[in-house]
Design a protein around this nucleic acid. Structure first.
Length: 643
DNA sequence: CTAGGGTTAG
């Protein structure tokens, strides 16, 4: 460290200058060290106020709470606290370092608020004691509230600052807009937008990107586009905001267009560019596109970025390609909790569910601590593999060993494990005695189980509970009606359907889709508009004949209407997953793996038929339904007929 | 002295 500059200072003598320079260059240790030397020397008192903001900033960066507290005392003793600039820096320190207590106001952790509220109390005290405040003071406190979940406080404070004659600026906007984005409060969001326009703040890129995010979170990408187009050239952040917004709203084509425009405009992609695009491919199961992005990632040497590798693992497994996902996972030197969880969830959804548990144990041995999502993944694996004892073990272990309180999702997963395994009474008791009040969705896992295990009596009781909580629950009405149909109680089924019609309830249209040669083919039930429709039906009829020879019997359980047998068979033939699968087979070279996605659960008959088709056509067929993956091969399915 | 974009679930 060179003291030369400080030892022979320019006129007027100043210690403050090198301290400020060091802090502004990120050399916080150096800044602190200079500050302490200054205090030990006979430096003029006037150096203290001028160097305090930089010293406080350095404390924040290095997390030095004790020194921070003594600087607070020094600020008061030296009268530097009267200076707005210095007091603001101190206020910021209280916001940024949780656990730094105001010397005169340490009440200790109060009630449920805990350390978080104590931290803000200290900041609030500093703020209240300030002799002079400016817009920065208000902005600092508002941001502190915004980032610590005190959303209402933050919004109230904006009104308060306005009342006291301070005009909100671009900093205020970009603290407030993320709050409105999180609450999807487009009404207040547009008020803020209007204020920004009126006060000439809308050309600011920080405000602009916050507005883009806010509208994107309110699923109004059209407004986001308008904001984006109205902003002056460019900023890489804005491009990435737009990309993330489109990707999260499922607008993959729009996202790709923006990606290309961005490259064209000479803006270099950064890791976040990909970590927002890749998950969108996974959610829509666009394997070809995902692979292209993967190639881009490799060329750009982004593949050592954990966010990207995790999203690639998730993307490949959601696209049905668990082995590539595993290959990427194996290439990571030390996986973090996110990549472990993504990989474990991949196996949980795919089939070799015990592999998920093996990975979980390896993860524990590697001293990576599981979080609530990891346990959700492990419980999902137990459910899909029918492992009841293991399920209980993990459910109890998560709180006993890791102090993670089971959430509603974990409880639902355990109820699912019990129900699928046929332990219906245990599942019923478990749900009835849960610490958290069960929701309709928890009960409906049991309703599904009742249907699989053909327990009509319990199904009726469970359905009653569901309808109390959610009178218009479409899925539950359908399942109960299926239960009635399956046990030949057509009158009850008909009555139920009538009451559904009276309530104006409509079944979610089922659809399946498949990507062939980079093009997406969507099949909606009863939609005959696909150009290959007749060819598909012809092929399906040929398969049906062969299937019958091999012993296939159509299963009518899932047919909703009580119609003649012959008609029912037609309905089943028209099931969109069958159309998508057969289209895949006749439009690709022999041996190609068929990957089909479906927006609902696969039906019993389609599941059986697909097993036969995989054998007859000698194809591996991967079906992703809304719940899990099915790998059909050689007449068998990886789910073991258990879903 | 105060500010912006991303990953795992359902």
């Amino acid at each position: 460290m060179s003291l030369a500059a400080a030892a022979s200072p320019p006129f007027p003598p100043s210690w403050a200058y090198p301290i400020r320079v060091a802090a502004s260059q990120g050399q916080f240790h150096h800044a602190i060290s200079l500050f302490l030397q200054m205090r030990a020397s006979v430096a003029p008192r006037s150096s203290v106020p001028a160097s305090l903001p930089a010293a406080l900033k350095s404390c924040e960066a290095l997390g030095l709470r004790a020194l921070g507290a003594s600087l607070h005392a020094l600020a008061i003793r030296s009268c530097a606290f009267a200076d707005c600039f210095t007091a603001n820096a101190l206020l910021n320190l209280y916001i940024k370092l949780p656990g730094l207590h105001h010397p005169s106001g340490t009440h200790g952790p109060s009630g449920k608020g805990g350390a978080e509220s104590v931290t803000l109390e200290g900041a609030r005290k500093v703020f209240d004691e300030m002799l002079n405040r400016d817009v920065v003071s208000w902005n600092t406190l508002i941001l502190g509230c915004a980032e610590n979940g005190r959303h209402q406080d933050a919004l109230c404070m904006v009104k308060e600052m306005w009342r006291e004659g301070f005009k909100p600026d671009s900093f205020t906007m970009s603290s407030v807009l993320p709050i409105l984005a999180e609450h999807a409060d487009i009404t207040k969001g547009m008020v803020v937008h209007g204020f920004a326009i009126k006060n000439g703040l809308d050309a600011d890129v920080f405000v602009g990107s916050s507005l883009i995010d806010m509208y994107a979170n309110c699923t109004r990408m059209d407004y986001s586009v308008k904001v984006f187009d109205s902003l002056p050239d460019r900023d890489a952040i804005l491009w990435n905001s737009m990309l993330a917004g489109c990707a999260q709203n499922g607008l993959v084509n729009a996202a790709l267009r923006i990606f290309r425009q961005m490259l064209h405009a000479g803006v270099r992609p950064v890791p976040v560019t990909f970590s927002s695009l890749i998950p969108a491919c996974g959610n829509l199961a666009l394997l070809c596109l995902g692979k292209q992005l993967h190639a881009y990632v490799i060329r750009g040497r982004f593949n050592d970025n954990m966010f990207i590798t995790s999203s690639l693992i998730d993307m490949y497994s959601k696209c049905g390609n668990i082995s590539i996902a595993r290959h990427i996972f194996d290439g990571i030197q030390s996986p973090d909790i996110v990549s472990w969880t993504a990989m474990i969830m991949g196996y949980a959804l795919h089939g070799p569910a015990t592999e998920a548990l093996v990975l979980f144990e390896r993860m524990e041995m590697g001293n990576v601590k599981p979080n609530h999502l990891t346990f959700l993944a492990v419980l999902t694996a137990c459910s899909h593999a029918g492992l009841v004892n293991k399920g209980w073990e993990y459910f109890n272990g998560m709180s006993d060993q890791y102090g993670i309180v089971p959430s509603l999702e974990h409880c639902a997963a355990l109820a699912d494990i019990l129900g699928r395994a046929g332990e219906l009474d245990e599942a019923y008791n478990f749900i009835s005695n849960m610490k958290i009040k069960p929701t309709a969705s928890v009960w409906s896992t049991l309703l599904r189980a009742c249907r699989v295990h053909k327990n009509t009596i319990l199904a009726e009781e469970v359905a009653k509970k569901i309808f109390e909580l959610e009178p218009r629950s479409m899925g539950s009405h359908v399942i109960l009606s299926n239960v009635y149909s399956a046990s030949g109680r057509w009158n009850e089924a008909a009555h139920l359907r009538k009451s559904m019609r009276n309530k104006g309830m409509k079944k979610e249209p089922a659809c399946s889709w498949i990507e062939v040669k980079n093009k997406l083919h969507v099949f909606v039930t009863h939609d005959k508009s696909h150009p290959w429709y007749n060819r598909i039906v012809d092929a399906l009829n040929v398969y049906s004949e062969q299937m019958r020879h091999l012993g296939y019997v159509p299963n009518m359980e899932d047919v909703f209407q009580d119609i003649e047998e012959e008609q029912k068979r037609d309905v089943l033939c028209g099931h969109n997953e069958k159309l998508a699968i057969v289209f895949g087979i006749i439009s690709t070279p022999p041996g190609t793996t068929i990957r089909v996605m479906k927006n609902l659960r696969i039906c019993v008959d389609c599941h059986t038929a697909t097993k036969f088709i995989s054998k007859i056509a000698a194809r591996e067929i991967v079906v992703r339904d809304v719940n899990r993956f099915h790998h059909f091969k050689d007449g068998n399915c990886s789910c073991g007929d258990f879903w």
